[in-house]
Design a protein around this nucleic acid. Structure first.
Lengths: 115, 115
DNA sequence: GCAAACTGATACGGTCCCGAAACAACACGT
DNA sequence: ACGTGTTGTTTCGGGACCGTATCAGTTTGC
C-alpha cells in the first residue's frame, strides 16, 4: 500500500494552495514558483538559457520572471565574469526563508491530512 | 521521524509543478486551481458567495474563474431553483478526469522522490 | 580585424486577471 | 405592493503576463 493515495494527494494540494491564496503575500505564478524552486533545489550555476530549457519556456519568460522575483528579493542576478554574455541567477536570504516557510506549510498540511 | 521531510516536500512540489508547466494544457491560475479542487473535494452545494468566502477573495474573482473553467468544461453552473438568486457550481466528467490525472501525477512524482 | 554565433534584455500587440463600483434579478418583511 | 437586503454578473481603468521579433553586448573562428 502506497504511503500517499490519490485522494490524500489532491487534498494536500488543495490545502497547501489554499493557504497560499489566503496568505496576503503577492501570488507567484506557477511558472515563477517553478523557477524559484529550481534555482534553490537544483545545483548551480543557473542561467537564463538553462532555466528556459529546463522549464520548456522561452527566454523572455525567464527574464521577466527574474525581474519580478528580483524586485521581491527572492533571487539575484549577477554577470558571469568568465563569459560576460551569461547572467547567473543566485539565491538570496529572503528567497531561502520564503521556501522554508513553504516547506513548513506543506509539512504541516500533510500532517493534518494524515500523511 | 516524519514520513515527509522539508526537502522532500519542496522537491515534490517542484517536480509536480514542473510537470504541469511542461504540459501543453493551458495553465490554471493558482486561484483557479484552488477553486477547482475545492469544488471537487469539499461537500456540495457550492455557491459563488461560499467559494469567495472560503478562498478569501472577492466575488468577481469567482465569477470570472467560473467563466474560464466553464469554457474549459471543468465545471458547470446551474441556477438554484429553491432560491433563484443562487448559482450552484457543479462537477463535470471532464473536471473529474482532469483532477484524476493531477492526482496520478502527484502520486507518480512522490514515488520518484521516494515518498 | 571582422563577420557570424550566442546570450540576455527589450518593444510590441494581444490576452487575461484584478479590485472597486455599479448593475440586474430575486427574496423577504412589512 | 413596495422598499430593503442578498446574490451573482458586468463594467471600468490598470497592471501583469505571453510569444514573436528585434536589439545590444560578448565571444569565437577565420
Amino acid at each position: 500500500m502506497p504511503l500517499l493515495q490519490p485522494g490524500q494527494a489532491l487534498t494536500l494540494w488543495q490545502r497547501a494552495l489554499l493557504a497560499q491564496v489566503h496568505n496576503a503575500d503577492p501570488d507567484l505564478t506557477v511558472r515563477q514558483m517553478t523557477i524559484l524552486l529550481t534555482v534553490y533545489l537544483n545545483p548551480p550555476p543557473h542561467t537564463v538559457r538553462g532555466l528556459a530549457e529546463y522549464l520548456g519556456v522561452t527566454k523572455p519568460v525567464i527574464s521577466r520572471a527574474l525581474d519580478t522575483m528580483g524586485t521581491m528579493g527572492l533571487v539575484r542576478r549577477k554577470r558571469d565574469e568568465q563569459d560576460r554574455r551569461n547572467v547567473l541567477i543566485l539565491r538570496t536570504v529572503d528567497g531561502s526563508l520564503y521556501l522554508q516557510r513553504l516547506g513548513d506549510l506543506i509539512i504541516e498540511t500533510a500532517g493534518e491530512v494524515g500523511i
